[in-house]
Design a binder for these strands. Sequence first.
DNA 1: TTGACATATTCCCATATGAGAATGTATTGT
DNA 2: ACAATACATTCTCATATGGGAATATGTCAA
Lengths: 114, 114
Amino acid sequence: MARAATTSDAFNAVAEPRRRQILLYLAHDERQVGEIVTAIGLDQPSVSKHLGVLRSVNLVRVRRNGRHRLYRTNAAAIRPLHEWTETFEQYWRHQLNRVKERAEAQANPKPLAK
Amino acid sequence: MARAATTSDAFNAVAEPRRRQILLYLAHDERQVGEIVTAIGLDQPSVSKHLGVLRSVNLVRVRRNGRHRLYRTNAAAIRPLHEWTETFEQYWRHQLNRVKERAEAQANPKPLAK
DNA sequence: TTGACATATTCCCATATGAGAATGTATTGT
DNA sequence: ACAATACATTCTCATATGGGAATATGTCAA
C-alpha cells in the first residue's frame, strides 16, 4: 500500500504546510480565492487544489457569491486533531516536572539520610 | 515538488494511522519492538520502519538494553501540534455557540418588538 | 565459534503527491 | 452574443510512500 491520500482525513490534509497556512488565514472570516492567492503567495491553480483537499475533508466551507467563492475554515473539523494531541498532555507535563525536579535537586541538594 | 517526506516534521509523521497507534501505545511506558509488533499487529519490518520515521522527528526515544531496544513516546514533540490546533479552539467554540443559540431561539422564540 | 534471537535495512512496486502549464466552466457587464 | 473575470480541472513529471519479502547487523548463550 502507498501513503494514504491527503484527502483521507484531517490528519493527512493538515500535513501540508500551505494548507495549514490557508486554514489559519480563513479561520477568522471568509475570503474569496483571489484573496487567498495573494495572501499565501501561490498561484491560483495550486490554491484551488489545496482548497479542494480541504473541502474533501470538510476543513473548509464554501459559499458562492456571484462569480466568487467564499471560503472559510470549519474549525470544528480540527477538533479531533486537538483531542488526539490532548491525550498526550499529561505525559509531557510529567516529563517537564521531572526536568524541573532534577534542576531543583541540583540547585538545592537533599541531604542524605544518616 | 512532490509531497513532503513523512520524516520532515511531526505533522507529516503523525498523518499515518499506525504511527499514531504506536505513539499511543508507547505513551505510558517503554516497550521493546517485539511487544509493539504483537500489540499493533503489523510485521516486524514495518514496525521498525514506522519507528524509524518517528525517531527521525523525535517523536520517540530509544534506549538499548542488551539485544532489545526500548522505545517510548516523547510527548513533548506532540506539543507543537497541540498548540497549532489550539489556535482554532476559539473558532469552534464560536460556531457551537451559534448553533446553540439558534436551537434555543427555535424552542423559545423571542417576541417581536411592537 | 556457532547459533539463535531481536531489530534494522534494502529492494520492489503500485500509488499518490504538489507544482507548473494549459485548458475548461460559470457568471457578469456591456 | 461577447469578452472579461474568477475558479476549477486536467495533464505531466520527479519524488516519496508503505507493505511484503529478503537480507543484514548486533548481541547474547552455550
